[in-house]
Amino acid sequence: MPSTLPQPTLPTTQRLLGRQPPSLAVGDRLELSRRNIFILPTATGLGFALLLLLLLLGAINYNNNLVFALTFLLAGVGVMAMLQTWRNLAGLRLELATAAPVQCGQPARFTLSVRADGMRTGLALDSDGGAPVWFDVPAEAPARVHLDLPTRHRGWLRPGRIRLFTRYPLGLFHCWTHVSLSARTWVWPAPADTGGTPPQAGRRPSEDGTQGRGQDDFRGFRTYHPGDSLRLVDWKAYAREQGLQVKEFGGDRSVEYWLDFSALAEPDTEARLRRLARWVLELERDQQRYGLRLPGTEVPLGRGPDQRERCLQALALFGVRD
């Protein structure tokens, strides 16, 4: 049974400190401060410490004051780099925009807007295991950082904990913060590869009398407009030198489709849902009227982007707890 993504365990530092990472909801603003910024030396930093130690030993042994000076200068540079790295994250203000629903298998894009009181360089954002996104924050405007999360299941997608980190300016220190994003978006099942035809529920004349446009019933001719499909051009009429005439079809609207979960043959729930998703997308593309029946829920007949979204959401969240 698919459900929400399992919440990863807390990172060690926060477990040790007994602290949850701060959470950021859509529309909220979070300012990073010393309470939630961590810093540790990197491998390069340890190598640098070794270099300093070697220089210091040389300085002591040869009693060489300029080597002392060089050592202390570099030590000072290391301290400055530590503070600068820390400052790179401190005081950043984060705002979160949620992601649009997405089909399973395609990345869901959350957008984080990052603002600072000056230019910040060499920042990166990543979530568990993902490749980091590198970005700078200009002095004047917020940086908009896109976090593309992979989707593996239908249902709710929560970005969960993300990591914001930097090693600038010298790569001696790794400074990071975890933010748990309390936003979610839903992921609809990837449509089945083969569809078959959706079951027609019945034909009835449209209530408003118009027939709309479609491909089934021939309605008559009209003059050609640039952009019309060449397949619809009446070439015989053209040969009779009557100009370019285009065949018009209509009447599709009169067909209604009820997509019923329990009417499908597949034994597997997911396979049924994927087939239903495919039909929803196809019917919507063809501008048909359709409705969806799932055990326990029903989406009444309808048409248009809202109908599509309602159906896809029902499919995405079928059997999923909040």
């Binding site: 002392f68 000076a69 202390f72 000072g76 400055m80 503070l83 010298l170």
Partner: peptide, 20 residues
Amino acid sequence: RLLLGAVPLLLLLFLLFPRI
């Protein structure tokens, strides 16, 4: 800037680091 900021530390350590 990093080097300039390192100068005070340099002076302090230079003067007070125990010399043997």
